[in-house]
Design a protein around this nucleic acid. Structure first.
Lengths: 194, 194, 194, 194
DNA sequence: GATGAATGAGACTTCATTCAT
DNA sequence: CATGAATGAAGTCTCATTCAT
């Protein structure tokens, strides 16, 4: 029991370290040693928890998905779906420094994984983004807005676009400016009458 | 003369091959051998034209900038700046298959270069995106629209966002849908009356 | 424990092999594969112990310094400083075959390292020679001889000169002849009377 | 004739450049391109004058031998052989800055060539040093001193030793100090009375 | 489970030498 | 002779993965 607990702690430490380091350095430039060091785990030991580097990447993506779920979970407690979406945008804006330095964790991973030809991981990052799209569409639908899927696409696309540009130009301000616009846009949307 | 011509042809072949392969495979997963093979050149010979792999990446980015300039040059012949911007969006939409498979050439390179800590190339991709932003802002300004820089940011951000999502989800349709929205948005913009 | 021992044994094997091969072939003509083969270690494994080739060179120089310390340590047990110095010369003379074939290990490395412009290693070989100069000067000082630093310089310079010439001309006899002269010179030195 | 002259000029330029660059950088760290650039000759053209890199090294050594001959030729005009030898030492002392930075041109080349196992060039540098030994011995002989070969060995060995140490420790002063000693030593030598 | 050590494939890069014009 | 271009062998170094204890 004690061992089991410690073991899962170690696994969790590795997962968290992977999420952090992969976000900052990208998957191609991150070595297993980097992650092991960050987690305080000997390199050889990593393989007891993750059979390959790809599995660590998978775990990091699962971690990002969990964090997304936590965020949408919190936002879900707000009564007005529009407030939930605005809360989402505000959460993005709050991370503008990180976005300008490292981009969106899931988006940048998706870019790197998309370059691979072996179809082992390239869908994983997309799945997290899909989950975000789905949740967002659900809010638009709850607002009784037309074409909620398209609106969700616009919102998430706006997020990825501003993150990428802020990252490419190293300008956190880009997130602020586009974030403001997205908030105004959300406010402007009118529900369909009966 | 003959030699000179062939030599520059080879350099050009290498640059074009680099632009293509780096777009498709990303810079970390692309080896010099990949580029050399694609260009039909022995590996050792690459170094006669480019002293390092980074220089090849730089050349590929310059190639993408040139293509951007050619596109904006052609669009610049249209009399109405609004038509130029719509032409830009249509050009993006026309490349939706490529975007869904490989993403935006410059945007995905920017993501990869952004992960590097040595400040040698990370600004290069950003510079191409900045060039696109500048040209776009100039069109909005010519339309006498307020806050042309913000509008440019919105348009280019929309492009990067839809490309990334289309790529991550492997859905060319995403580019079509968001492209349509951007066209409608461009049509809806009203100039300021004095 | 067992592992630890074997590991340090391997490191030691590599260091010894590096010292030997670098002495014989010089650092520019010695490949990591040469050293690895000599040590009975796969090439890739060398990097577990030494991050770069330069570090192996550093280790080899440390090895030579250690051998020098061992020699001067043994000589230090002799009561008469003059006998210590004569013992040093005799040790050099005993290695005349090696000197004629490969020169002085430290001296020849110093020559090669001196050609480098990156100031990373060029001082390392000099430091070993400085150590030899210092020990030698201390003996002259203990003999109450005037200008002990100059005398040390003369002795060590004589060693390096005869080693280089013996090596260049492939004549061990040169070491013998100059060694004899140095012994006579040491005998002729008269302490200062107060 | 014009062509011949120009051609031999080019050969001479290459030889001089080789002598200079090989002295400064050593033969292993010097590329043909380095020498060609220094001589202002296109790389491909070098092979019309020297079939291999080794031949360029040979030419550089011949250049150093020529310079030695010029020096001994000038010194030979002095009536007193002792003054000739002292003039030699003074010439060495005058080059102390170069010695501290790059060592003796011939001596350092001899060290590098001595590391080679193919017996193609290793004797060439030795031959230049032998020539110096021979000339020096001739002066001692003219002074009617006993064992002139041993005296020559001592003098040249002193030169190589002080050059190597000055180079290894980057201290021109070493040449000055040892040079002074050699001058005093030369003055102290007494011819044999019959 | 735990861990330092081991391994080997493959990447980038350099350069003497040769070639085609 | 002249010259830019071409070539391929080799060298250093990295790293995911495996092994032995």
């Amino acid at each position: 029991m004690e061992r089991r607990v410690r073991a899962s702690q170690k696994r969790q430490r590795l997962t968290a370290a992977a999420a952090r380091v992969l976000h900052e350095q990208g998957m191609e430039r991150t070595t297993l040693a980097d992650i092991a060091r960050e987690a305080g785990v000997p390199v050889g030991n990593v393989y007891y928890y993750f059979k390959t580097k790809d599995e660590l990447v998978r775990a990091a993506l699962a971690e990002h998905r969990t964090r997304l779920d936590e965020l949408t979970g919190r936002l879900g407690r707000l009564p007005d779906p529009r407030d939930r979406l605005k809360g989402l945008v505000e959460a993005w804006a709050a991370r503008r420094e990180s976005a300008a330095r490292y981009g969106c964790p899931t988006g940048t991973l998706a870019v790197e994984l998309g370059k691979r030809t072996d179809g082992t991981l390239d869908a994983e990052a997309g799945a997290v983004l899909r989950r975000l799209l789905d949740w967002t569409a659900a809010q638009f639908r709850a607002l009784n807005l037309p074409a909620p899927d398209d609106l969700a696409l616009t919102l998430v696309s706006g997020y990825q676009g501003m993150s990428l540009l802020a990252n490419a130009l190293r300008e956190p301000d880009i997130v602020s400016r586009e974030g403001e616009r997205l908030l105004r846009w959300l406010d402007s949307l009118q529900p369909v009458h009966e």
